[in-house]
Design a protein around this nucleic acid. Structure first.
Length: 473
RNA sequence: GCCGCGUUCGUCUAGCGGUUAGGACGCCGCCCUCUCAAGGCGGAGGUCACGGGUUCAAAUCCCGUACGCGGUACCA
């Protein structure tokens, strides 16, 4: 394949949603796979709804996902002259024409069509207006829109994902290219830009599939070959409805805030509609690049399975280089403690968290002593009989040298044996004393990280607590 | 209404005429074990939406039906 040129063309009317992110990802993967160009174009022709901050937000989200672009961002709002030239050319070549119907007249035609139960299609009557008359009326200031003159022949959309579909002659009406106030409309700007930018492949959501025949008609009028289309199935929420804020997170930065890693989100999104063909699931962006192809994209809609995302994220949490994990954790609330200690704690806890938020939360115990204790834990291991055991453990560990998890564990086991207890009888209350909860990394490894003083303090304090007020819990 | 697209375990998917319909998430069990994860092993879960064809043979090809989704703008 000669170097393809693809584009991602969001409109800045909202933040980057996962659907858009997946579209961007597929375009990016395709460009990288074939050594092509990935172009970013901001479709902001609807000035009422477009906002500059949202553009920045979208760019930020894309960078976070690792999707860098080769050209752009181009803003359609700044390319007015290009569209005007194209409009003039189409008009001059009789491929488009002025239509002078007012919005009110059009509305009347629409309701008339509806009354007899048929779809409204502009009848093309303005095509018959002679050029001289059209020019004269335009010059006299009469309002008009520019409509595309669609030839009376079938239109074929070749789609790499959805297959070939043919639209019979007459299926489309002569749709509007330019508003009566001179501002160009979406279909027009898209095609003019795609031609100007030399776009070879258009990868976007199926919601655009009904637009595709309009676009092939436009490409034809513009005298350019139509690009190859690839329309992606929708991403739905868990309930099968269109994904929205109602389903919890739907925007990229919401996942970021939840502590989802960009690599995990990329990986997850890649699998929503595409598969490498074998059973491979966990892939880096680089691996995806080497495996990606349009042929392996499925046509159907898919649901966003948050559980699977969390699983994948947990996998990445375990595997990414420690330095990178520590770096990614920084925006989250972390305990105030020695950095080396914290790094070791992170290594201990990383396999137990599914998000950075969960990890940061678990790390809190390396800062402050636990103030609350899991009720179920108190019930099971908070009886007063545990107090002397914990005190004994505190003493024993205090004199254990070196203060490393293996020798600490030997001490702990020896103590349990001396008391005729199982290690768990000692370890469980100790875990509760040190962390406040019943689930944690291996006890003695945590103790090694927590240090002698902290360990002793917490064990004794907890022993006092349960000895003093056994019925309080 | 009209036009278009889709439909394989609950979910994401493999499958592109002949398979005991494979994998992953989730779920259940076992192992590991000081707990919880991770990891390992195993299990339950699919009349391949339905009905007709074509074929020796259909999840795979064709035609209908149902359901879902999208479009039907001087929005994108």
């Amino acid at each position: 394949m000669t170097a393809p040129r693809v584009r991602f063309a969001p409109s800045p009317t909202g933040s980057l949603h996962v659907g858009g992110a997946r579209t961007a990802l597929y375009n990016w993967l395709f460009a990288r796979r074939h050594g092509g160009a990935f172009i970013l174009r901001i479709e902001d022709t609807d000035v009422e709804r477009s906002r500059r901050e949202l553009t920045d937000q979208i760019l930020h989200a894309m960078r976070w996902l690792g999707l860098d672009w080769d050209e752009g961002p181009f803003f359609q709002s700044e390319r007015g002259s290009l569209y005007r030239e194209a409009a003039d050319r189409l008009l001059a070549e009789d491929k488009a024409y002025r239509a002078f119907e007012t919005p009110e007249e059009l509305d009347a035609m629409k309701s008339a069509a509806k009354a007899i139960g048929s779809a409204f299609r502009y009848d093309g009557s303005a095509r018959a207006i002679p050029r001289e008359e059209s020019d004269r009326r335009a010059a006299s200031g009469e309002k008009f829109v520019l409509r595309l003159s669609i030839p009376n022949e079938p239109l074929v959309v070749n789609d790499a994902v959805q297959g070939r579909t043919e639209f019979p002659a007459g299926a489309l009406d002569d749709f509007v290219l330019v508003r009566s106030d001179g501002r160009p409309l979406y279909h027009f700007t898209v095609c003019v830009d795609d031609v100007a930018m030399g776009i070879t492949h258009v990868i976007r959501g199926v919601d655009h599939l009904p637009n595709a025949p309009k676009h092939v008609a436009l490409f034809r009028a513009l005298g350019a070959p139509a690009p190859v289309f690839a329309h992606l199935g929708m991403i739905l929420g868990a309930d099968g409805k269109k994904l929205s804020k109602r389903h919890g997170a739907a925007g990229v930065e919401e996942f970021q805030a939840q502590g989802v890693l960009p690599d995990a989100l990329d990986n997850f999104l890649a699998l929503l509609g595409w598969s490498p063909g074998d059973d491979k699931e966990r892939m880096t962006l680089l691996e995806m690049v080497s495996l990606f192809s349009l042929e392996r994209i499925g046509p159907s809609a898919s649901r966003f399975d948050h559980e699977k995302l969390l699983w994948l994220n947990g996998q990445y949490l375990q595997e990414i280089p420690a330095a990178r994990l520590v770096e990614m954790l920084k925006p989250f609330h972390l305990p105030n403690c020695d950095a080396v200690l914290l790094d070791r704690a992170i290594m201990l806890h990383r396999s137990r968290a599914r998000t950075l938020v969960e990890l940061a939360h678990a790390l809190a115990i390396y800062g402050d002593d636990p103030r609350v204790f899991e009720p179920a834990g108190l019930k099971k291991f908070g009886g007063p009989e545990a107090a002397p055991l914990l005190r004994a453990l505190a003493e024993r560990l205090s004199v254990t040298e070196p203060f490393s998890h293996s020798t600490l564990e030997e001490s702990g086991r020896a103590l349990a044996a001396e008391k005729g207890r199982k290690l768990g009888d000692l370890a469980q209350p100790a875990r509760l004393a040190l962390t406040g909860v019943l689930a944690s990394p291996p006890l003695f490894e945590m103790i090694e990280v927590l240090g002698k003083e902290t360990t002793r303090r917490r064990l004794l304090a907890f022993a006092d607590l349960i000895a003093r007020e056994p019925e309080a819990h």
